[in-house]
Structure formats: structure tokens, C-alpha cells
Simulated assay, not measured.
Amino acid sequence: MEQGAARERTTETPSPASPPADAAHGDPTDPAGTADTRFVRVPGQARGGDAAPDARGEHTHGEPAGLVPRSVRRHSVRGQVLEALRTALVGGDLVPGEVYSAPALAERFGVSATPVREAMQRLAVEGAVEVVPNRGFRVTERTPRELAELAEIRALIEVPVMLRLARTVPAARWAELRPLAEATATAAARGDRAHYAEADRAFHRAVLSLAGNQQLLAVADDLHRRSQWPLISAPTLRHGVLVADAAEHTALLDALIARDLTVVRALVREHFTGSEC
């Protein structure tokens, strides 16, 4: 086992001819290879026939196609894996209640298990997954009540900030954010939940950044990300929900430009409580 760990530390990306460092030696969190491994590939990994062989204990039946996430501009392998996992969470490819093992996911990604474990540990800190001894990581099962609580906290934080900004920020500055609002509309029109979630966070970050408070940005973005994780037995997100949610971004910009505080307050509250993203 220590030999396998040493091999992990010496390489982050094994050559195509050799398997991931501890794929052949097992994993302390999954010695039996029993965890579910339906998943995606890391950015840049080819689709189709050149995928890595199925890992031990992997469920291959009904694996959805086209799950390669968009390229992630990260320098580290761990960063790329973390973003791929987050995209899979939002897109529903990581299923609430299912257990996933680090070595099997690493084989899918074409990397060693070390960056996968590190990324999963980060997600555990964020509350997205939980460690299952001797098996791997289980995706957290969230309830509608948790989503409502997150929406309430976001409203308590963001509504006062947006109302203050509406009184002080010039109309020209709000107009500069229209391309971000349009990006959410484009993703919504395609029904692309993962890309919509990313564009949605980018829009809200840009709005809140005008307050000049980095701590606010960090807290708000964390709450926003958590609110995007799928619920237990979540149904497929309706196309109309995404489109309506994206339209609220444009309406909010219009209200901010007009300094219509009543409309701003109503739109922001509705955006949090009425959205499924």
C-alpha cells in the first residue's frame, strides 16, 4: 500500500500505456472496488473509443454519453479534477446518495488517484460529499428545505447589497454587465444546466463585486454554489425554468439602471426563491 502511495507522489499524469498509480494496488477508501463510478472525463480527454478501461466494480450499464466538461483553465491536475467534479455535481452526473471511489474515477480521468482524493476531500469540506470508510465518497443527499434555507440566507445577504448598489452605481456600469446576462440566456436556451450554473454565478459575482467587499464575494459565491447542487431524486430541470431564470437577470439590470428599488427588491427575492438553479 505504501509503495502505491509513493508512486502516486512521483507522478500526477501517468502515460497512456500505464494505468493510474494506484489503480492496480487498490485504495484505502475502496479496497474492494465496490463504489459506483459512472462519471465524466477530465477536460481535454478524448471521447469515445480511447476511454480508459472500466475500473473494478464499475457500473457501466446505461452510462450517459457526452459528459466531458468544458475545458477548465487551471494549472494543476487537482484543480481540473475539482472543477470537473463540480460540473458533474451541478449537471446531475454525480448522483445524490451514490458512492464513488477515487481509484476508479482516477482511471476515468487518466490521472493518479491522489488529485481525485484531494478534490473529493475539498468537496467534503464544502458539504457536497461525505467520506465512506473503505469505499470512497458518497454524494450528499439534500432536501428542498435545505435549498429554501440557502435561498433565505442569500436573500438576507444580497438584497441589501443590491439595493445599496442601485442607489450609487452609475447606469453605465450596470450596462457593462449585459454580456454576462446574455451568457446565462444562451446557456438556458440550450438547456445546458452545468454551463448555465457557471454563467449564473459569474453574473452574480460581477454584480456583488461592485460593492468592493472580497469577503462578501467569497461567502455569497459559496452559498450560490451550494444552492446549485441537485436535490434527492431531483427531476430533470425543465427548459422553461432555466429560460425564465435567465430572463430575470436582464430584468434586474434594467431595474438597477432605472434605480427602481422596489422592482430590484422583488426581482432578487423571486430569483432566489423561485429558481431551481
Rank of each mutant, 00 (worst) to 15 (best):
G91N: 08
A6R: 15
E98D: 10
V219A: 07
T140E: 07
E2T: 08
Y100N: 04
E276Q: 11
E248L: 11
P69G: 05
L94V: 06
R154S: 10
L156S: 13
E176N: 11
E198C: 06
L210Y: 01
L105F: 01
S101K: 02
L217R: 03
M1S: 09
V139I: 10
A21V: 14
V219L: 14
R135Q: 15
V111H: 05
R122Q: 12
R265M: 00
L150T: 04
P64G: 01
Q80L: 10
L150W: 07
D36F: 02
E276N: 06
A185G: 12
H249N: 09
A46C: 09
E58S: 12
D192V: 00
G92H: 06
V99E: 12
G240A: 03
F272S: 05
D260T: 03
D260N: 15
G26W: 07
V263F: 02
L253Y: 00
V241C: 04
L163E: 13
A84P: 01
N134W: 00
V40P: 03
S227Y: 02
V81P: 08
Y196F: 15
R178Y: 08
P69T: 04
L163K: 01
S233L: 05
L261D: 13
V77F: 07
H224T: 03
T168A: 12
H204R: 11
E107M: 10
V95Q: 05
R265A: 11
R142S: 09
T10S: 13
R259P: 08
H75N: 12
W229C: 06
V68M: 09
R259M: 09
L217M: 11
R142P: 05
A51N: 14
G57L: 04
L252N: 04
P230S: 09
P19E: 13
W229S: 14
P160C: 04
S101I: 12
M162Q: 10
E98Y: 03
T87R: 15
Q3F: 02
V40K: 01
A52T: 04
A52D: 14
G4P: 11
E158S: 07
C277F: 08
D222F: 06
Y196L: 14
E146V: 03
L237F: 02
R259E: 15
G110Q: 10
A104I: 04
R41W: 02
R193G: 01
A218D: 13
L223S: 07
E107W: 00
L123D: 06
L163Q: 13
Y196P: 03
T37L: 08
S227Q: 05
R138I: 08
A124V: 03
S112G: 15
R201Y: 01
H61N: 00
H239R: 14
T262Y: 09
L67F: 01
A220K: 03
E8Q: 15
P20H: 08
P230I: 06
G49P: 12
A202M: 00
E276A: 13
A84Y: 00
R108P: 13
V159Q: 14
G79L: 15
V169S: 10
L261R: 03
L105M: 14
S209D: 13
G4A: 14
L208E: 02
H59G: 10
V169W: 01
H204T: 12
E58K: 01
G33V: 05
L180F: 02
G127D: 07
E248G: 02
Q80K: 15
E58R: 04
L89Q: 11
Q80Y: 06
T236H: 10
P53M: 07
